[in-house]
């Protein structure tokens, strides 16, 4: 059975629909990548799962279940910091500037009363050591401002994994960091999550990262899922034209580009300007009259929402 099941999730800001009927499944221990251009609703989907949507946004439809049981606000409050954890994009501003980082790593243990502050503090130091922070005892007493961005991201990972959650949601955890340490941090996160048997929902723009870390991929466009498949088949034979384009944006070392680095034509339309029917049709070379109605997400293991999917080779 799946660990997390999102069914037909919709999120709105007042009357404006931002996420529209998203389906997503995560099985225990697997890494699922959620990809798509800026504004496609990845963060909103993640925040809805955690029950952390900001004021003005609300879940207007669908169901989110963990272990088959719906996530109510009360249950979410219990699960956050225990079975569920999340890390964010901006490592420095995501830490409380006035709290020593050790205490912030221990936050979930203390918040749930699962350890005395002393025990939690010791565990936090141990966790800091495991995420590769040198001199963890000394670092634990420092404030975030005394650490580099990369170290702050390690602190956040330590804080998220100290409770050995069953699901970690990582929302572009490395985009704010230096390119040279991005890979390092992601690898570390993947390693620690695998060790603890934690499933990961990894949100990213970076298809290279997806190829490296993910078991399955979920592609979003315009607030909807357009394709969902295991990573191998998806990379080998993408079916949705949008996915195919996304994949062409990866620079390949073994195959130097004959053309300029591929860029998807046009801009992502804002939620106000999403077309009727298939939302990608305004940028899609294969669009026809049929695309004026909404395609369903169909298939078993490799699911796609398109009337004119790419031919499988």
């Amino acid at each position: 059975m799946s660990l997390l099941a999102v069914e037909d999730l919709s999120v709105q800001a007042g009357p404006l629909s931002l996420v529209d009927g998203v389906d997503l499944d995560i099985r225990p221990g697997e890494v699922v990548a959620l990809v798509g251009e800026s504004g496609s609703g990845k963060s909103l989907t993640a925040l809805s799962i955690m029950g952390l949507l900001t004021e003005g946004l609300s879940v207007t439809g669908g169901q989110i279940r963990l272990d088959g049981t719906p996530l109510t606000p009360a249950r979410l409050q219990r699960l956050r910091g225990q079975d569920l954890a999340m890390i964010f994009q901006e490592p420095v501003s995501s830490l409380n500037p006035l709290m020593p980082v050790g205490a912030q790593v221990a936050e979930s243990l203390v918040a749930h009363g699962r350890a005395t502050p002393q025990e939690a503090g010791r565990e936090a130091v141990e966790m800091l050591r495991r995420v590769g922070i040198p001199e963890p005892e000394r670092r634990a007493r420092q404030l975030p401002a005394e650490l580099s961005g990369g170290m702050c991201q390690r602190v956040m990972i330590a804080a998220a994994l100290i409770s050995r959650p069953r699901l970690l949601i990582a929302d572009e955890p490395t985009t704010a960091l230096d390119v040279t340490i991005q890979a390092q941090i992601l690898a570390l996160m993947g390693e620690l999550a695998a060790e603890a048997g934690t499933a990961v929902l990894l949100i990213t723009h970076d298809m290279g990262v997806v190829a490296e870390l993910a078991d399955r991929v979920c592609v979003m466009y315009g607030g909807r899922v357009v394709e969902q498949a295991p990573v191998g088949p998806l990379f080998a034979a993408p079916r949705h034209p949008y996915t195919a384009m996304l994949l062409r944006t990866i620079p390949r070392l073994d195959d130097p580009p004959k053309e300029e680095l591929f860029v998807i034509r046009g801009n992502v339309p804002s939620p106000r300007d999403w077309p009727e029917g298939c939302r990608f049709r305004s940028r899609c070379p294969r669009a026809t009259e049929a695309c004026r109605s909404r395609p369903a997400l169909e298939g078993d293991d490799h699911r796609v929402a398109c009337f004119h999917p790419m031919e499988t080779p």
């Binding site: 955690m50 952390l52 900001t54 409050q77 956050r80 910091g81 225990q82 569920l84 954890a85 999340m86 890390i87 964010f88 901006e90 501003s93 995501s94 830490l95 409380n96 500037p97 709290m99 912030q104 936050e107 979930s108 918040a111 749930h112 956040m156 804080a159 998220a160 409770s163």
Partner: peptide, 22 residues
């Protein structure tokens, strides 16, 4: 609305803890 408040909630801090500690 600062990210660290959202993170503390993601870590399981309830309203009293968020208000008092963060």
């Amino acid at each position: 609305d600062r990210p660290f408040v959202r993170l503390s909630r993601a870590m399981g801090a309830g309203t009293p803890r968020v208000l008092w500690q963060h």
